[in-house]
Design a protein around this nucleic acid. Structure first.
Length: 221
DNA sequence: ATACCGATTGGCT
DNA sequence: GCCAATCGGTATC
C-alpha cells in the first residue's frame, strides 16, 4: 500500500480561513480527492481578491466570482478559453475573496478514470496544468460554490482535501511568479505567489503572462 | 445587443 | 517558439 493513500484527515475550514498565500504553501503535498480520483498537489497559486490585480475578484463581485466572496472552504470553478474548467479553493476571511488556484498534481488514485478522461497522453501530463487537472477530475460548472469542509450534512460532498501521510520538507517548496497572469500592474512577477514542489515532474511549465495590448480606437460600426 | 478577452492547451514551424 | 481554437463572462454602447 502506498503511503500517500493512507492519509485521510480532512483539512478543516480553519485551515482555509488563513491568508491565501499561507494556504497555498501548505497545500503542497496534500491529497485532493474528487469523484474517485486522488491527486497529490504539486503546484498551486494564491490570489488575494480585491487588492490583487491578477485576481478574478479584483473588479468586485459578479455572478461568476460569487463563491470567492463567501467563506473559506468552498470551491470556485471557472471556465476559460472556451474549453477549460479550473478549480480554486476559497481561502481567507469571508468577503476578502481570496482563493488558491489548483494548478497541478500527480494522480495517485483513480488511474483508470483519468486515463479515460485524458485520453492517450503521457501520465505526466494527466493533471499538469489547471485545465488538464480540471479535466482529470471531471470538474464542471456545476461544481462551483460547493462546500468541501462540511462533514456530512446535506448534499453529498465528493471533494476532500487531506493532509499527506508525510508532510513535504520546507526546503522542497519553491516559489515564483504566477503563470499567465497579465495586465498592467497585474503581471505575475508582481507577486511571487506560485508555489510548487522543487524538481517534481508533475509541475507545469512556466509561461509568462502576455503584455496587454491596447486597441487604438473602437470600431463602432 | 455587441465587442473584447482570458489564472490554457495542443498542434505545428 | 509561435499561434489558433473556442465560448462564457464582463464591460460597454
Amino acid at each position: 500500500m502506498s503511503p500517500v493513500s493512507t492519509a485521510t484527515s480532512r483539512l478543516p475550514r480553519d485551515f482555509f480561513a488563513r491568508s491565501s498565500v499561507d494556504v497555498a504553501r501548505d497545500l503542497l503535498g496534500c491529497l485532493l480527492s474528487f469523484g474517485g480520483v486522488t491527486l497529490r498537489l504539486t503546484e498551486v497559486e494564491a490570489y488575494a481578491g480585491q487588492v490583487d490585480p491578477g485576481s478574478h475578484a479584483f473588479r468586485g463581485e459578479t455572478p461568476r466570482t460569487r463563491p470567492m466572496f463567501g467563506p473559506a472552504g468552498f470551491t470556485y470553478v471557472y471556465f476559460t478559453y472556451g474549453n477549460h474548467w479550473c478549480l480554486n479553493l476559497v481561502a481567507g476571511q469571508e468577503g476578502t475573496a481570496e482563493a488558491v488556484l489548483v494548478r497541478a498534481g500527480e494522480v495517485v488514485e483513480g488511474h483508470e478514470l483519468v486515463r479515460a478522461r485524458r485520453g492517450n497522453v503521457a501520465e505526466r501530463d494527466w493533471a499538469r496544468g489547471p485545465g488538464r487537472l480540471g479535466q482529470a477530475l471531471g470538474m464542471g460548472g456545476e461544481h462551483t460554490g460547493r462546500d468541501f469542509c462540511r462533514p456530512v450534512l446535506g448534499e453529498p460532498i465528493d471533494l476532500v482535501v487531506a493532509e499527506p501521510a508525510r508532510p513535504v520538507p520546507a526546503g522542497a517548496v519553491a516559489t515564483g511568479p504566477r503563470v499567465g497572469v497579465s495586465g498592467p500592474g497585474g503581471d505575475g512577477t508582481a507577486y511571487p505567489w506560485r508555489f510548487f514542489l522543487e524538481g517534481d515532474r508533475f509541475v507545469s511549465a512556466y509561461r509568462p503572462g502576455t503584455v496587454k495590448r491596447r486597441r487604438a480606437t473602437a470600431p463602432r460600426l
